[in-house]
Write a protein that binds this DNA or RNA. Structure first.
Length: 650
RNA sequence: GCCUCAGUAGCUCAGCCCGGUAGAGCAUCUGAUUUGUAAUCAGACGGUCGGGGGUUCGACUCCCUCCUGGGGCUCCA
């Protein structure tokens, strides 16, 4: 009998009979209940059932590893499809990939509601219990076409992905079979820790002109703990939701009489917004920016010149017909800033010219996408445009990337990454049609990022219509990815607006590049992130209520008033609660507003001119002399500390 | 804009399946209480049950439609 030599660890070999499966080998080495879901054979992911015909190296893929979870979730998607087709025989499965935390599967079928989702989940559990083997089958193209001919979506996938001669594989579990490359787990009973989470509609191939499909989302883990932890994580995320905290802390409101996507900043939210602005104004003065204000609307000709109307019309509000022409609300400030640049003759000595504006722009986002402060129709922005030569672009980008990094550290943000957003040469109608310029500027940005040593990913089709950009990406607490900051290179404005300068030799030069940048996102989105990041427990310098005074009894009203006046005089945001509630109740009520500190005032404090300071974590420092407290909190605010330092955390 | 789920007092939620005309806790207000660290007691106020239409003797409840919100698609800061 022939044997194969299997490398089971670096340099360690064992011999088995030819024809043994990878699964048998792994069970031989790691035992039956190893949690291994598939295997790497010579570095390639394979099923456990793979028969070993020749010498090779075998490694286990653990169900809890990234690769293992991916396989498990993929198999879970098949389990879902099996359950759905059993319950709804007319449903046509399309695609069902694993995703972070789970999987989804798109079906051509009637939409399903929560109750149906429950039934489907129960059905999945039934199939799981049956312990059906999941079997890989190799098929010729003809046989695949026969098997899936009744499903035009599968046919379309085959047309696109499978060369006509080669054929491919399918995976079968019981009566259910799906076109799939694999690998998969060995049997349905291995998929235990899953839960269907939601259903929604999605278009086939994300194309709104194509069929609408029913998408079912689920989560899936290798262990009970994995699933539980994820459920807990989702609950925790819900507690941080800026919409919930925004309501509790009275940061903003949205009223349907005003309109959706049009948030109103309430006093507490306005404090956050204006604190951010004040910080940015100061920072950007140091970087040489000059502030301007431009109108919120402008004539059609302006937006035609800028390219907004051909390339960005669907993002703008419909036109307003006035007696002297057609006007649009501005979706961006750049066209107006270009006119400021052009307002006088510019010299090379003026460059780089940095024009900044605090203001609002208006974008006609589709109603279904609006969400709290994260996606709105009126955007408050710390916007600016830098006019410079090509040689100066690198330095300006470097400054802005540093500025973004400094801002983020001031606000305590650590978890973000850079993305180089490129045009899509396959889909050019979205962009200004100058392929050479796209290639040149993209390469230029790539080199700038490489020289700065910043790590980044590249993403095709994410550029602005006028040029490539560097975006800084975040993930929200509920796991959705959003752009925060953006730095964009515009090679088109110079021609469209005739931007020129007189160079050192007195010659007029038209090579003016424009950098569009918004390092603090929009105030709406920024405050949403800030709120979720801090769970509303903002650093003292941002906290809408920096000190909440709480009196023990009526006797202490007078001293409380004195303390409050002293703090107010030092520019500290302070409020008094001298109601006749018990102190425990007052603490409980004010927790919701998340003041940086609560100052407790009773007999001892009144007599000694002190206060007792309670931090948000419940720790307390008693008998701090009032003057000392004022000095300390002033310092904390001035230095924009991201930690509360007055009460030591022990 | 499309699909889906939801909408009951300022907030959190019960009642709806099986139609008989609305409830709780917190907040607010008024008393009493003067309090030392996550709910002092009592009372009052507060809702054309998201809007409109339909079915019915009768609709918070069933049906249709619109609006708003959550999730997803698309888009994007």
């Amino acid at each position: 009998m022939s044997t194969v030599k299997i490398e089971i660890e670096d340099g360690e070999f064992r011999e088995y009979e030819t024809g043994i499966t990878a699964g048998d080998v792994i069970r031989d080495i790691h035992g039956r209940k190893s949690g291994v879901v598939a295997t790497l054979i010579d570095g390639i992911e394979k099923d456990m059932s793979t028969v070993l015909e020749s010498n090779c190296k075998i490694e286990p893929i653990d169900g809890e590893s990234d690769a293992g979870l991916y396989i498990l979730r993929h198999s879970c998607a098949h389990l879902l499809a099996q359950a759905v087709t059993q319950l709804y025989p007319d449903a046509k499965p399309t695609i069902g990939p694993p995703i972070e935390h789970g999987f989804y599967y798109d079906f051509f079928m009637q939409p399903v509601g929560d109750e149906e989702l429950k039934k489907i989940e129960e059905q999945m559990k039934e199939i799981m219990k049956k312990n059906l083997p999941i079997v890989r089958e190799e098929h010729t193209n003809d046989s695949l076409r026969k098997m899936f001919g009744g499903n035009k979506f599968k046919t379309e996938i085959m047309d696109d992905k499978i060369g006509y001669e080669v054929g491919s594989t399918a995976y079968r579990q019981g009566e259910f079979v799906d076109l799939c490359r694999g690998p998969h787990v060995e049997s349905t009973s291995q998929i235990r820790w899953f839960k269907l989470t939601s259903s929604s509609q999605a278009y086939w191939r994300a194309d709104s002109k194509r069929e609408s499909l029913t998408r079912i989302y689920g989560m899936c883990y290798a262990t009970k703990e994995g699933l539980r932890n994820r459920e807990k994580q989702i609950q925790e995320a819900a507690k941080r939701d800026h919409k919930k905290i925004g309501r509790e802390m009275e940061l903003y409101m949205i009223d349907e009489m005003i309109g959706k996507g049009l948030p109103v900043w309430l006093p507490n939210g306005e404090i956050l917004k204006s604190s951010i602005e004040a910080f940015a104004i100061k920072t950007e003065e140091e970087y040489g920016y000059q502030r301007v204000t431009t109108p919120v609307l402008g004539k059609k000709q302006l937006f035609e010149a800028s390219g907004h109307l051909p390339h960005y019309a669907e993002g703008m509000y419909p036109p307003m017909e006035m007696d002297d022409g057609i006007y649009y609300l501005k979706a961006m400030n750049c066209p107006m800033h270009h006119l400021i640049y052009r307002n006088k003759k510019r010299s090379y000595r003026d460059l780089p010219l940095r024009i900044a504006e605090y203001g609002t722009v208006y974008r006609n986002e589709m109603s279904g996408t609006l969400a709290g402060l994260l996606r709105v129709r009126m955007l408050s922005m710390n916007d600016a445009h830098i006019y410079c030569t090509l040689e100066q672009v690198a330095q300006e980008f470097a400054n802005n990337i540093k500025m973004v990094q400094d801002y983020y550290s001031a606000f305590g943000f650590e978890d973000y990454y850079f993305r180089l957003s490129l045009w899509d040469s396959e889909n050019t109608e979205k962009y200004i049609d100058q392929p050479e310029n796209w290639e040149a500027t993209q390469n230029h940005l790539r080199k700038i990022l490489d020289d700065l040593g910043v790590s980044y990913i590249e993403s095709i089709g994410e550029a602005a219509f006028y040029g490539p950009k560097v975006d800084i990406q975040f993930t929200t607490t509920i796991g959705r990815e959003e752009s925060m900051s953006t730095i964009q290179l515009d090679f088109a404005a110079k021609e469209r607006f005739g931007l020129k300068y007189t160079d050192e030799t007195g010659i007029e030069n038209g090579e003016v590049f424009v950098i569009h940048r918004a390092p603090l996102s929009t105030h709406e989105r920024f405050v949403a992130f800030l709120t979720e990041h801090w769970s509303g427990n903002f650093p003292t310098w941002l906290s809408p209520i920096q000190v909440q005074i709480i009196t023990i009894s009526e006797k202490h009203k007078k001293y409380a008033k004195m303390v409050s006046e002293k703090l107010l005089k030092s520019g500290i945001r302070v409020k008094i609660d001298d109601s006749d509630n018990t102190i425990g109740k007052k603490i409980r009520l004010h927790r919701k507003m998340r003041p940086a500190y609560m100052a407790i005032i009773g007999d001892e404090e009144s007599e000694n001119m002190t206060i007792s300071v309670r931090a948000r974590n419940g720790l307390q420092r008693n008998g701090i002399p009032l003057d000392e407290f004022v000095q300390e909190i002033e310092k904390e605010i001035h230095n924009r500390k991201t930690t509360l330092d007055i009460v030591p955390e022990e």
